[in-house]
Simulated scan of single mutants.
Amino acid sequence: MHTYITRRILILIPMLLVITFLIYLGIELMPGDAVSFMIGPEAAANIPIERLDELRESLGLNDPFLIRYFRWLGGIFKGDFGYSLSSGVPISQIVFSRLPATIELAIAALLFSTLLGSILGIISALKKGSILDNVLTVAGMIGLSLPQFFFGLVAIVIFSLNLGWLPVGGRMMPGYEKFLDRLPHLILPAIVLGSSLTGGVMRYARNSMLESLNKDFIKTARSKGLPEWRVNFIHGFRVAMTPVVVLVGFRLPMLVGGTVVIEEVFQWPGMGKEFLSAVRGQDLPLVMMIALFTVSAVLIASFLIDILTALIDPRVRLE
């Protein structure tokens, strides 16, 4: 097991380095530089070229690409993420102030989609070929194909504007800091975000449950005269949930970076909304760090899922 973990770490490190290089290269290929974004084209037209060159030299923008890349990478290793071009605030302060809101929304959506998708998937598997199975399959396909922004706007119109049950958007009212105070604001965006994930979880749970019910140990349990509910939920359900657990493990880091649409629709003050604002304002250092953070979270989650899978199934370590 130690050899397997070491091998996975040795693979993870160069992957992270390659990703940092690709992110920096992508920003480098964009037209303009930090000075042009900070000053703006209109203001830059009234500033002497010599002054702009001096400013680029002081910021190190005239250095070769690789030197600037390794300087940026070294700053990351030291915990220096740079500063936002639009606000001048340290990027680390922006990221860590927005991250709790995104994690809160992502976990709520993940719990909702996992519980609902697993229950519906198991019911669909146990009722295979029935009308209920067909209805749930169609509903799952609709959930996967329905655009999140459309579903979010419809939910706001129905539950916020017409019925008045839930707030339109935001994370909390001024002066309220407890989780229970934020809960009404969390329900609607979490359900909308989780609904788009429920269909995938339901499909995984259904297929895994059907495969589990065809295993020999299930036939053995039935031959011993065990009740059907015990065969399905004690023996079949436990094995069927392994692929779903792996899926959920991958979904969480993807949700952290994939809540842009929902956070914009519901004005949720998280990483996704901040990333969209940084792109609009051409705040390149902030865009780079949010992108790097999101991709790194996906890779680290993949590493942890590999370790968890190896613990569950020793054949993975042997392969």
Score class of each variant (00 low, 15 high):
E42C: 04
R222W: 04
I5W: 07
G143M: 04
F21D: 12
A291S: 15
D53L: 09
V246Y: 12
G32L: 05
A291H: 06
I119D: 06
R51P: 01
V89T: 14
S92G: 15
S118Y: 01
V239I: 11
F179R: 11
L276F: 11
M38C: 07
P314S: 05
I307G: 00
S87N: 10
I11T: 15
D313W: 09
N46Q: 05
I49T: 09
R56K: 03
V244L: 02
K219P: 01
M209P: 02
L61K: 03
L115D: 08
V256K: 03
R98G: 04
K215I: 10
I67T: 13
I119G: 10
G143C: 07
G175V: 06
L136N: 01
G129E: 05
W165K: 00
T242I: 15
L85W: 13
I187N: 01
G175K: 09
P285K: 08
L286I: 02
R182Q: 14
A101D: 13
F151D: 12
G117Y: 10
F179S: 09
S58A: 13
Q148M: 14
A240M: 07
A139G: 03
I27Y: 05
S87T: 15
W72G: 00
M38S: 15
L276S: 14
G74A: 04
A301S: 11
F70W: 14
I67K: 14
L55A: 07
Q148K: 14
D53K: 11
L52Q: 11
L105P: 08
L29Q: 10
G170T: 05
R203E: 12
I91N: 09
A44V: 07
M241V: 01
T137M: 09
S58D: 12
E177Q: 12
Y4F: 15
W268P: 00
R280M: 09
L17F: 15
S212W: 00
G26L: 14
M271Q: 07
T309A: 14
L247G: 15
E42R: 12
F266R: 08
R315W: 10
G200F: 02
M288D: 05
T6W: 08
L120D: 05
V298I: 13
F217L: 04
I300F: 09
L73P: 10
I158S: 13
T20D: 06
R238V: 02
F112Q: 01
S130Q: 10
G32F: 07
V239T: 11
G82P: 05
S195W: 06
G143I: 04
L161Y: 03
L144I: 12
P243K: 00
F81G: 08
T259S: 14
I107K: 02
N46W: 08
